[in-house]
Design a protein around this nucleic acid. Structure first.
Lengths: 195, 195
DNA sequence: GTCTATACCGTGATAGAC
DNA sequence: GTCTATCACGGTATAGAC
């Protein structure tokens, strides 16, 4: 680890940290706009206004930069779910929100492609899905107890399906923004609620 | 176009065509195994047992090779649907079958990432989805007439949702092969059939 | 149609000075 | 922490022999 974080007595490395944050912001922008493959370390460095070698000081290999961006997004997404009492509804809301942030869905799709080729990125997604499945399955179970979801559903399978529709619709929406992303998720969830 | 196809009187270019086919097979293998990014033209050439320049004679740029592979797969997939009287069931079957072909789902995911960054690949997917949606919507409509699907479904939205679950589950399955790909698609379809 | 040879440029990555 | 080289590699391209 080249960069230290948190220091006693007024953060002597505050400047380095700030730089790091700035780099991450620029990198997210680049990945979303250009894609992973077409984003060069030189370009990120240019936009962050430092040399390529300077950038490599913070993130020695391109993948490190990528993963750092991912971890930041994961924090945001996790926060959104935490303490949520309506997981399924928040999923639908998240889908809707994603559509409003330019490049985010595109980035997500790029990531998926990357995960297929890169073990570290794959690990990121595995964790993410495990987390989402657990949350949503709990949500389904809760709805069943409350009598607002079909009792004959297997909560795990239902959770899988809900995540899958959400993911799949993001892809379709990206390819053709006419598609009603949230509508399809909503449809499936409504079907699960019928009794 | 460097390579001519179809010739009167017993195909004088049969050898070149065969070479082309062999290259495509090797390329599919490479993309599935190594991913798009990690597949070099040199490697494809090596495996196809010809020089890099020889490969470039058939496919001047890497993307051309990629698109050719895509088009071939599209033909296979399209054939599977054609004349099918149970579109939804064939979708589920296709999902099951994909799981048995090593690297295919991985390739598909790689492609999605590529589509996010590459207009030509994007076009390929847009077409593919339009086609699938039309087929499946017809299938839903037909099931409604037959009384085997809920009458209150919007066939278009239902079709979107079905494709989305199938796609989304392939992703989850790839990341964790424990997941029951076809099971989730089946669940959603069963829900659509209840009345 | 296919080969060898060669070159160009952008890329991720490293070494070492300041 | 940041820089200036410098490297090897990959995608692309061309010339010219067979």
């Amino acid at each position: 680890m080249p960069t230290q974080t948190v220091r006693t007595a007024r953060n002597r490395y505050a400047k380095g940290e700030a730089r790091r944050e700035a780099i991450l912001a620029v990198a997210l922008e680049c990945f979303a706009e250009l894609g992973y493959r077409n984003t060069s370390m030189r370009e990120v460095a240019r936009r962050a206004e430092l040399s390529q070698a300077g950038l490599l000081h913070h993130f020695p290999v391109k993948e490190d930069l990528f993963l750092a961006v991912l971890r930041e997004r994961q924090q945001v997404d996790t926060r959104d779910y935490h303490g949520e009492e309506q997981p399924v509804e928040s999923l639908i809301q998240a889908v809707r929100r994603n559509a409003t942030i330019p490049g985010l869905v595109r980035l997500y799709m790029t990531l998926l492609g990357e995960a297929a080729e890169n073990h570290a990125v794959e690990g990121f997604f595995v964790q993410r899905y495990d987390f989402a499945r657990a949350i949503l399955a709990a949500g389904v179970r809760q709805a069943q107890l409350a009598g607002t979801a079909r009792a004959d559903l297997d909560p795990e399978t239902a959770a899988q399906a809900l995540i899958a529709v959400a993911d799949g619709m993001q892809v379709q929406w990206l390819l053709d923004p006419e598609q009603d992303m949230a509508g399809a998720v909503d449809l499936v969830w409504k079907l699960m609620q019928q009794r």
